[in-house]
């Protein structure tokens, strides 16, 4: 299977710059990683959702987590900023080391974690407030000093939304289109000046044009931020990500349980052209999932 030629495997077109980009990424990854996951397991009650994940997330790159439904990629993403804490039955073991500190150490305050590691969700979730108040919310609750007007403007500019909304900052955010709402949610995440932005299928509720704008935005943002994105869309992962992790579901018929495992984690280039695992290959060529 692995001997299949490149042509048969390419179901997606990679940007032209990708070879050098992903080549660099592969070399840099281990030296400069933001997260080191060591044997991470997630249980929901007795349900083993994710098993034994060990991986490194490189700084200022886009890492995509892909895989079929139920493979635990969203669950894993929610370990990066302890969002799983909100689910009372969820239990995380192993260590998620962020800049040398284990996020799951007992002394760690989840609120401090989330302040540094922002999140953008599947469905745009603006607060039922004005655009301005949406963006200003994070800086206010985090006590960020500075001119709030400038902060709001900067965040909206960074999210490539300023020109569209500068005349209606006081209007309710629900008046924006879905794509604008999602970019506003990205601006809102940026406004607290995080280190990492996690994106949980950020384009799944958007049309292709709006999705393309978010993808462009991600590519711009990686100059300043580390981005981890979960996506169902393989073309998207191929277009935007530097490194791609492929997850799959392991079904245990005897106990009728489904557990997510990490199959392969490499540069996007390799995952999409020459994966080393036959399951990855089957998935990206559309034979399952």
């Amino acid at each position: 299977m692995n001997q299949l030629t490149e042509q048969t495997l390419v179901t997606v077109t990679l940007p032209e710059s990708s070879p050098e980009r992903s080549g660099d990424a592969a070399n840099r990854a281990d030296d400069d990683s933001v997260f080191s996951l060591r044997g991470v397991n997630v249980h929901y009650g007795s349900f083993h959702a994710v098993r034994d994940i060990t991986m490194e997330i490189p700084r200022r790159q886009i890492t995509a987590l892909i895989g079929p439904s139920g493979c635990g990629k969203s669950t894993l993403l929610r370990c990066f900023n302890r969002m799983n804490d909100l689910i009372t039955t969820a239990k995380v073991s192993g260590s998620v080391i962020y800049n040398g500190e284990n996020l799951y150490d007992s002394y760690v305050d989840a609120v401090e974690v989330r302040r540094r590691i922002g999140m953008v969700f599947q469905k745009p979730n603006p607060f039922p407030k004005s655009i301005y108040d949406n963006i200003a919310f994070g800086p206010k609750v985090n006590g960020i000093k500075g001119n709030m007007d400038d902060l709001v403007e900067q965040a909206l500019r960074d999210a490539a939304l300023w020109d569209e909304v500068k005349d209606k900052l006081k209007q309710n955010a629900y008046g924006l289109s879905g794509g604008q709402q999602q970019r506003m949610c990205i601006a809102r995440a940026i406004a607290v000046q995080p280190d990492v932005i996690l994106m949980d299928e950020p384009c799944s509720a958007l049309d292709p044009i709006a999705s393309a704008r978010i993808e462009d935005l991600m590519t711009e943002l990686k100059a300043q931020y580390t981005i981890v994105i979960v996506t169902h869309n393989m073309q998207q992962a191929a277009r935007v990500s530097d490194r791609t992790a492929f997850f799959t579901v392991e079904v245990d018929e005897a106990r009728s349980s489904r557990t997510g495992i990490l199959v392969e984690f490499d540069t996007a280039q390799r995952i999409f052209t020459n994966p080393s695992d036959s399951r990855t290959e089957a998935y990206i060529t559309g034979r399952f999932g």
Binding site: M119, K123, N125, F127, G138, C185
Partner: peptide, 15 residues
Amino acid sequence: VPLALREASYGLGAR
């Protein structure tokens, strides 16, 4: 009130 709004808030580092 939808859970999504609470998640948005927690995700921004709100208590």
